[in-house]
């Protein structure tokens, strides 16, 4: 009986630790609302740590093209994202025209993009740390793939 309890505690502890690790980089939130009558509406909240983890399982040949395009910009990314993390929250860019409203802001450690146009309302929030990890993962995709 005690053995079972110990096993149960061990399993619970592992689950809690795993959950904490998954949630350690915050959550990604993607919400799409299509304005037409039969439009799609969905909202997804995912632990952001899943993204770089998942990228590790993507074959490098699938990421080779994106990796090659990203690598020249990595010094800027490596400077920009930590600098953005240190900045206070606020609106970075806002574009308003008759057909569209785009807002890019930093809120609570995440970069938030809101787009409201004639057809859709889209909200995307990505934790900066997870975004940095994911970008680095893509950029580091095997550049010896050709060999």
């Amino acid at each position: 009986m005690f053995l079972l309890a110990k096993v149960g505690i061990g399993i619970m502890g592992t689950v809690v630790a795993g959950g904490a690790m998954l949630c350690s980089e915050g959550f990604m939130h993607v919400k799409v609302h299509e304005k037409q009558a039969d439009g799609t509406n969905f909202s997804i909240v995912l632990p952001a740590a899943l993204v770089p983890m998942t990228l590790k399982f993507v074959p490098n040949r699938k990421l080779a093209d994106a990796s090659a395009k990203l690598r020249p910009y990595m010094p800027v990314v490596d400077a920009a994202i930590p600098a953005l993390e240190d900045c206070p929250d606020g609106v970075l860019v806002e574009v308003t025209d008759p057909g569209e409203h785009v807002l890019i802001a930093k809120r609570g450690g995440s970069i938030v993009v809101d787009v409201n146009d004639g057809n859709d309302v889209v909200h995307v929030a990505v934790p900066l740390r997870a975004a940095h990890s994911a970008i680095r993962e893509i950029a580091a995709a095997n550049d010896t793939e050709a060999f």
């Binding site: 010094p75 240190d86 900045c87 860019v93 308003t96």
Partner: peptide
């Protein structure tokens, strides 16, 4: 044309990013 663009850049951010741009 009822258009407006607003950009707010923390100078500390610009100071760290500008040297990295080539």
């Amino acid at each position: 044309q009822n258009e407006q663009v607003r950009v707010n850049v923390p100078l500390a951010f610009a100071e760290k990013v500008i040297p990295a741009i080539t």
